[in-house]
Design a protein around this nucleic acid. Structure first.
Lengths: 313, 313
DNA sequence: GGGAACTGTTGCGCGAAACGCATGGATAGA
DNA sequence: TCTATCCATGCGTTTCGCGCAACAGTTCCC
């Protein structure tokens, strides 16, 4: 026979009260039940825990040790279930969120900050990477969900429009085009162009925009980090085009932004949810927090706007 | 309904094996039993732990968290019972031993050392005090047992003779009596006598010995600590009489010991056991260790001899 | 394409476990 | 001595846990 939680609970109550009758009242069970439970426990352990004549109950040394240990076990049990309860309520655990570096650095920080303030036991894990890997993270289950652009419809994920941002021209401070209120892609394409590395969604979209304006994308230089591109522009090596959301990542001063038109190119960012899996409670709570920012029409950098809440796709 | 260890064990096995059938074989129960146990657990917790179609079993995020927690709880249970088992075997816990300072400092160290080497998880608590308080410690249950002299039979304790030691005269290095092979109490009584404090058992016995030799105890000075008395003798303030066991506590050099005769006074040290209470396992083991030293006739300071093992009184 | 082999679920009946009630023996206090 | 408690125990009932067997959905292979 093995030691059950029931026996330990019974023993702990009796040992603490130093009385079967009192403990029985406390636990809302009959006194005989406790008497048996403790006797069973003693038989199983093969040691006497309580010294009892018909009138008094005393702990044996072994009984004192057993009380200590029973309390430990019961506390572990109680704490474990409480943890699981908080997990279930989305107050504890981890949210794994795949996203683009720009989103992670600009859009999410206030959300994470508000989320953590409300649920201090939650951990937010940001898996930042390029568009391609972000989608894979969701499909593979590494991430609970993602916030990202999406090149093409992927099976197994649902898309919920979140924000869209506009491409701006990024120019050296005293560049001739900086005097315009707006700049066209065609005008921009005549300047030495500084592009972000091949794999990025930004690169994909600038290539497409130049093509649409009837020009060929022919970068003077490339860098994978947008901050690096910003630095190159500021140094006067050329011009670039970046979505509004990433501008906070570019060191300010010595360069200016102008809306790009002909065409206006917008980048759409989605919440990417796995279609099959149900979202863990913590992730659900994080999404609620994100929606709260959208509903409150929280301030976004210039050129970035919240999408209307609507149907998932 | 509450979460039982049985359910947690079942769930942990299934979640680890990712298979009800395999887990059933492992736990030697029927597969249907596990199916129910896990279903019950899920119902109680109000969350789905395993995603299962008829062919495959997968953990949900909540299931992964639950597995972690179930393992914690089960480990706490297992560890607790193991601790209690080791406690029961006397390999873990504490021995509380009341004793005289001289016994604690001279007789016990090798015993404690051997005991701890064999049972590293055991703690030995020495409650050292004067004869009177030592007895009380045992009667009150503060100590598991004691090693001490006993002025008079006390109710509720059993005595087991352990060692006896002889009173020696303690003399300054160049004192006239130091040239004798033996010294009588009467001779000693004619010198300025340096006594230990009133409450001690040593004082009680020297007083009695002088009385028996027809002299009055009339100390030139008193100190409670025998090392202090030794210092006074070495400084030439007078002579003293101390039981052989305490000599290692007296700083060596500048004083000499001579057997005291007429009468030879012996101090008897007993193991003092509570008659009622059963000894905790650790204490029993400590006593065994002590007996081992007696059986091996372990070397003792000159003038101290092991008592024969015999009946308890 | 149809069946064989496995998987987890569920209905059923049995046996054990746990419980409350009532009782008995023992003791402290009036 | 009597009474009020206290814990242990016998007894009957209810609940719980289990295995067996039938069932339903998948996968694999001939």
């Amino acid at each position: 026979m093995d030691v059950t939680l029931r026996q330990l609970t019974a023993y702990a109550a009796v040992a603490r009260a130093v009385s079967f009758t009192a403990a029985a009242a406390e636990l809302h069970v009959s006194q005989s039940s406790l008497s048996r439970a403790v006797a069973d426990l003693e038989r199983t352990l093969g040691m006497r825990l309580l010294e009892r004549d018909t009138r008094n109950v005393r702990l044996t040394p072994a009984g004192a040790e057993a009380l200590r240990i029973a309390d430990q076990i019961l506390a572990a049990h109680r704490a474990g279930l409480a943890q699981l309860g908080r997990y279930g309520a989305g107050e504890r655990g981890a949210v794994a969120l795949a996203t683009l570096p720009s989103v992670a650095a600009v859009l999410l920080p206030p959300v994470i900050s508000a989320f953590r303030a409300r649920r201090p036991e939650m951990t937010v894990r940001l898996l930042d990477g390029l568009e391609r890997s972000v989608l894979d993270r969701v499909v593979d289950g590494d991430a609970d969900f993602a916030v990202s652009t999406v090149a093409r419809r992927a099976p197994g994920v649902t898309l919920r429009p979140l924000v869209r941002d506009r491409f701006d021209a990024v120019l050296p401070e005293h560049h001739p085009l900086a005097e315009r209120a707006e700049v066209t892609w065609e005008e921009l394409g005549r300047e030495p162009f500084l592009a972000v590395g091949t794999d990025s969604s930004v690169r994909r979209m600038t290539d497409a925009a130049f093509a649409q304006a009837g020009m060929e994308a022919n970068p003077a230089a490339e860098a994978s980090n947008v901050a690096t591109v910003g630095g190159l522009v500021a140094a006067g090596l050329g011009v670039s085009a970046l979505p509004a959301l990433v501008h906070p990542l570019v060191v300010p001063g010595r360069l200016v932004r102008r809306p790009l038109v002909g065409p206006v190119v917008e980048r759409r960012l989605y919440v990417v949810l796995p279609t099959r899996r149900t979202l863990p409670p913590g992730a659900r709570r994080f999404l609620e927090q994100l929606e709260e920012f959208r509903s409150a029409a929280d301030a976004l950098p210039a050129g970035v706007v919240w999408e209307e809440a609507g149907e998932d796709r």
